[in-house]
Amino acid sequence: MKRIGILGGTFDPPHHGHLIMAEYARNDLDLDEVWFIPSHVPPHKQGAKVAGEDRLRMVQKAVESNPYFQASDVELTRKGTSYTVDTMKYLKDQFPENEFYFIIGGDMVEHLPQWHKIDELQNLVQFVGVKRSGYRWNPEIPVHFVEIPLIEISSSNIRERLFSGNSVRYLVPDSVYHFIKEHKLYGAES
């Protein structure tokens, strides 16, 4: 049996904050792997700014240097709204021997009671919350908390910086930075 961390998100683009979350959760929970799953259509926010294929390629580039990390196209392949419960049912069917840990940022913990089919989802995964300042913890849903260094990086800020012509170097892995520049994503110049 493998202990697999799942880090879902839009990854529009993936950044060092995502990688730090995954690495700290992996170490804290002694996970065998962490799978990064870009969403097709996230249920809780507007659609992604770039195509799913580009977001998947950026995630692949972001995780390529860590042997414990891998990118998965499960939600991009399935299409439709990316409800976590549907993804986890699929993964449990495909990998029944694995134990899954769903990693979420502290900003999402307080919204867990409103997640689609949360009662069913709680039976499929153990939630791992990465502590983030400014958010309260909801005791209604059992969550294992992981402490990480406070690093305020967001994909929306990165997109804004790129659109304004500002550098995002050191906010994203170099391989992601070069992919963004090469493909002129988010208004970036080559």
Rank of each mutant, 00 (worst) to 15 (best):
M1S: 15
K2I: 00
T10V: 12
P14D: 07
H15N: 13
H16R: 13
H16C: 11
G17Q: 09
L19F: 07
I20A: 03
M21H: 09
A22Q: 06
E23Q: 14
Y24P: 04
Y24S: 05
Y24F: 15
R26L: 12
N27W: 03
D30R: 12
L31D: 10
D32Q: 05
W35M: 10
F36Q: 08
H44Q: 13
A48I: 00
V50K: 06
V50C: 12
A51T: 12
G52V: 02
E53F: 02
R55Q: 05
L56H: 07
V59K: 09
V59Y: 10
P67S: 14
P67D: 12
F69D: 07
F69G: 07
V74H: 00
T81L: 05
Y83A: 05
T84M: 11
T84F: 00
T84H: 00
V85N: 04
T87A: 03
M88G: 02
K89D: 01
L91P: 02
K92L: 01
P96G: 11
E97M: 06
N98S: 14
Y101P: 07
H111R: 11
H111M: 10
H111S: 15
P113V: 07
H116F: 13
K117C: 10
E120M: 09
N123K: 15
V125Q: 08
V128K: 04
V128Q: 03
G129P: 03
V130M: 14
K131R: 15
G134N: 04
V143M: 05
E147A: 12
I148E: 02
P149M: 05
L150D: 15
E152L: 05
S154T: 13
S156D: 13
S156P: 01
N157V: 00
N157Q: 14
I158K: 12
R159Q: 09
L162Y: 05
F163R: 13
F163N: 14
N166V: 03
N166I: 01
S167Q: 11
Y170H: 15
V172Q: 12
V172K: 10
P173S: 11
V176M: 10
F179L: 14
H183S: 06
S190V: 07
